[in-house]
């Protein structure tokens, strides 16, 4: 009888530079990173949180940072180990001021069809920080028992 596969104990560190127009490649990269997370026995809730934050950050980089310009590139850097997942996403755009994004949960903004991505990234990840220019976001998910 064979047991369940043992969780991967080695860290996965990789950097990807992908053209904004290469949607399939971006999706494959995203799935590869999430596969590395799942291989290290992060639970369903953690995998949901990391996918959500990664999807939102990539969508921001492509839609807002790159203006959907297929000639622009996004850089995804990640390090996945048993204790934490660190992901950085950088676009070639001019950046933005995350503090200027209105709170989407106030009564006057509740009907706005956009502006919730950053809030979700902050809620589901342990830490997120933007570069001074605002064209790079670094997100960390720390496994709760890792302290």
């Amino acid at each position: 009888m064979t047991g369940a596969p043992q969780p991967e104990t080695r860290a996965f560190t990789e950097s990807f530079v992908i053209g904004v127009g290469r949607k399939e490649e971006i999706r494959r990269t995203l799935e590869a990173v999430l596969g590395e997370v799942a291989a290290r026995a992060y639970d369903t809730g953690a995998c949901f949180a990391i996918r959500l934050a990664l999807e939102e950050a990539l969508a921001n980089a492509i839609r807002h940072g790159s203006g959907n310009d297929p000639s622009k590139r996004v850089t995804i850097e990640c390090r996945v180990d048993r204790n934490e997942v660190v992901i950085s996403i950088e676009d070639e755009g001019p950046g933005f001021d995350p503090a200027a994004v209105p709170d989407p949960t106030t009564e006057e903004n509740l009907q706005l069809p956009s502006g919730r991505g950053i809030m979700l990234m902050r809620s589901f990840m342990t830490e997120i920080a933007f570069s001074a220019r605002g064209n790079r976001v670094r997100m960390i998910y720390r496994r709760p028992e890792a302290g």
Binding site: F48, R51, L52, E55, E56, A59, L112, P113, S114, R116, G117, L120
Partner: peptide, 10 residues
């Protein structure tokens, strides 16, 4: 299983 903030907007 997964829904983005853009889908919430729609």
């Amino acid at each position: 299983d997964h829904l983005s903030s853009a889908a919430l907007g729609r």
